[in-house]
Design a protein around this nucleic acid. Structure first.
Length: 271
DNA sequence: CACGGATCCTGATGGC
DNA sequence: TGCCATCAGGATCCGT
């Protein structure tokens, strides 16, 4: 999926334009990860108030309730005045007075879920266990270290789980661990305070940089204006197996952790 | 209950 | 219009 930066860039690319718009039509395509959870007709006539983000979820606040949008692995949003008829991978279309919002998601791991409000059980089920926002004021190095002390799993898998800190996906997890000089296999609980602090800083840096650059290391990412990622953020380790480390020259290694690829430098990242 | 693995789905890629 | 195996940005659910 789009990781936090891609979701945030998507949000920024249409939040201002859709705010204040009236919902005129809502159409679902093939089933997504979860059902919408309401009759689409019940949202008609309501107004979109704002678009927020929590982790990798986008939250559309409307006068008729909340729409939670997740892009899964392959999802992207488009928001435009006019859109062609939905294609085979367009599974959510919302027509508004300001334009049409469309979710394109070939793999359909994404979702659009309705909830009356953020405190509703349905919303809490999706958002309730999420960790702290890495770019927000609550992401604190000492608290981060303390939370890691409770986890016996490899640090990379703790990052991906999103229960300590949200938004770090498979690419940025490898990148942040490289920047912090930490081997992805280290048990989270074994990280010292200084190392946890370095990782804390690396996560903020890599995510903030990606947002600032408008997007992405992702090959096929595009924001809701249809602009594609700029490839400005060159990965230091992700997808570079066998290539020389940009710092020390040693070949980057790859391994599997929890069915996901991990990339690291055996020289620069200490166990 | 914490952890590891299987699982959802489609498309791209590379080996044969 | 070749076929098959493998892999891909996520995260939930289930068994141990």
């Amino acid at each position: 999926m789009p990781e936090l930066p891609e979701v945030e860039v998507t949000r920024l690319s249409f939040a201002g334009r859709i705010a204040g718009a009236t919902i005129l039509g809502l159409q679902m395509g093939k089933p997504l990860r979860w059902p919408l959870g309401c009759d689409p007709a019940q949202l008609l006539g309501h107004t979109v108030l704002q678009v927020r983000r929590r982790g990798k979820y986008l939250l559309l606040d409307t006068t008729g309730g909340l729409l939670l949008i997740h892009l899964g692995m392959s999802g992207s949003l488009v928001f435009a005045a006019d859109l062609p008829a939905p294609g085979k991978h367009d599974h959510f279309d919302m027509r508004t007075s300001a334009g049409c919002l469309r979710l394109h998601d070939p793999r359909r791991f994404g979702a659009v879920v309705y909830a009356p409000g953020e405190d509703d059980a349905g919303a809490r089920k999706l958002l309730g266990r999420l960790g702290v926002e890495p770019l927000g004021p609550d992401f604190d190095a000492l608290a981060f270290h303390a939370a890691l002390q409770l986890r016996q799993t490899a640090i990379k898998q703790v990052l991906l789980a999103g229960e300590v800190v949200v938004g770090v996906g498979n690419i940025y997890a490898s990148e942040a661990l490289f920047m912090a000089g930490i081997r992805p296999t280290v048990r989270a609980a074994r990280l010292s305070k200084p190392r946890a602090a370095r990782l804390h800083a690396a996560i903020r840096e890599v995510l903030a940089q990606a947002v600032a650059k408008g997007g992405s290391t992702l090959k096929d990412f595009s924001n809701a204006q249809g602009e594609s990622g700029y490839f400005q953020l060159e990965a230091r380790v992700y997808d570079r197996a066998g290539l020389p480390c940009k710092v020390c020259g040693a070949p980057i290694r790859s391994m599997r952790q929890g069915q996901r690829s991990t990339f690291f430098c055996v020289n620069c990242q200490k166990p």
